[in-house]
C-alpha cells in the first residue's frame, strides 16, 4: 500500500535531487552524456569566486522575500481572515477580492504590474504621483539603488522591493483562505468563555484563538518559507531586471536555453536544496522536541 507513494516520492523527488547533486560536480552542456566531464568541486569554487556577486545577491534576495512575507504578508493575511470571519455583510465579496490575485494567471499578473502599475509613463503610480515627465519619472522596476545597504554592494534594492509588492499582494490572499478555513473550525464557546472572562479582542485572539489553531499555524509557517525559497514566477514575468536575482532564477538561467551550463546550474540548485534541507531539519527537530516534552 505504501509502495506506490514511496515509489513516486523516491523517483520524482529523491532521484532528481541526487542527480542534481551529482551533476553539480560536472561540466556538461546537457547534450550528450559523453560530453560530461567530472570537475570535482570546481563549480562550487566558481560560485564563490567568479559568480559570487550573483550568488550573494540571490541568497540575500531570497532572505528579503522570506522576511517580507513573514513580517508583512502572513500577518496581514491572518488579520484579513480574522476580520472576514466575523460574518460582515458582503464577506463573500471581500474574500473574492482578496483571493483574486492568487487565481489570476501569471501573464495577467505580469501585465498588471508591469504595464498598468509600474510603467514609467502610463503607469498608475507615476500618474498619481505626477511623475510622468521626461527626466522626472520614477523607474520602479529599473532602479537598483539600495534602500537598505548591509555591506558595500549588498542590500535591498529599490526595484526588488517593487517586485516584493506583488508577492505580498498574492501571498495575503493565499494565507487568508487557509486561515479562514481554520477559523471556521474554532469552537465558538471558547471565544464566548474568553469574552465572559473579560478579555478584549486582541487578548482573546492571542491567548485563545491563535493557540488553538496550532496545526494551521504550522501549515502557514511551512508555506511561507517554501514560497520564499522557491520564488521565481513573479520575478520572471517582470523580466528579472538588474539586482533582482534569486536562487531559482540563477538555476533556470544556467540550465534553460542554449549551450546550457548544467554543472553550474546544478550547483546553484544544490545551494537551494541545502536551504530547504536546513529548514526541514530545524522544523522536524523542534516538532519532535515539543512532542517529547
Amino acid at each position: 500500500m505504501v509502495g506506490v507513494p514511496t515509489f513516486l516520492h523516491v523517483s520524482l523527488i529523491w532521484v532528481p535531487a541526487i542527480c542534481t547533486f551529482l551533476l553539480s560536480f560536472t561540466n556538461w552542456n546537457g547534450f550528450r552524456f559523453d560530453n560530461m566531464e567530472f570537475v570535482g568541486l570546481r563549480n562550487y569554487k566558481q560560485l564563490f569566486t567568479v559568480f559570487e556577486k550573483d550568488l550573494y545577491e540571490a541568497l540575500l534576495n531570497n532572505a528579503w522575500v522570506l522576511i517580507f512575507l513573514f513580517v508583512v504578508a502572513t500577518p496581514l493575511g491572518i488579520l484579513v481572515a480574522y476580520i472576514l470571519d466575523k460574518n460582515l455583510r458582503g464577506t463573500a465579496v471581500y474574500q473574492s477580492v482578496f483571493y483574486f490575485p492568487v487565481v489570476l494567471s501569471l501573464a495577467v499578473v505580469g501585465f498588471i504590474w508591469k504595464s498598468v502599475i509600474y510603467s514609467p509613463r502610463q503607469g498608475v503610480l507615476n500618474v498619481l504621483l505626477n511623475r510622468t515627465e521626461e527626466g522626472n519619472q520614477i523607474s520602479w522596476l529599473g532602479d537598483s539603488d539600495q534602500v537598505i545597504t548591509l555591506v558595500s554592494d549588498y542590500g535591498l534594492s529599490k526595484n526588488f522591493l517593487a517586485i516584493i509588492a506583488p508577492m505580498i499582494w498574492r501571498h495575503v490572499g493565499y494565507i487568508m483562505v487557509l486561515y479562514l478555513a481554520g477559523l471556521k473550525a474554532v469552537d465558538p464557546s471558547l471565544r464566548e468563555a474568553a469574552a465572559i472572562d473579560g478579555s478584549n479582542e486582541w487578548q482573546s485572539f492571542k491567548n485563545v484563538v491563535f493557540p488553538s489553531l496550532k496545526p494551521v499555524n504550522i501549515v502557514i509557517l511551512v508555506i511561507t518559507v517554501i514560497e520564499a525559497l522557491r520564488v521565481f514566477d513573479i520575478i520572471d514575468v517582470l523580466n528579472n531586471p538588474i539586482g533582482t536575482d534569486v536562487l531559482s532564477i540563477l538555476v533556470t538561467e544556467s540550465i534553460l536555453g542554449e549551450s546550457s551550463n548544467v554543472g553550474r546550474g546544478s550547483a546553484y540548485g544544490v545551494m537551494l536544496l541545502m536551504l530547504c534541507f536546513g529548514f526541514v531539519v530545524w522544523y522536524l527537530r523542534s516538532t519532535f522536541r515539543e512532542d517529547d516534552a
Binding site: 514609467p120 519619472q137 537598483s144 531586471p241
Partner: peptide, 8 residues
Amino acid sequence: QEGANGRT
C-alpha cells in the same frame, strides 16, 4: 533617457 532598465 534615464531609467532605461525599467522601460520596454
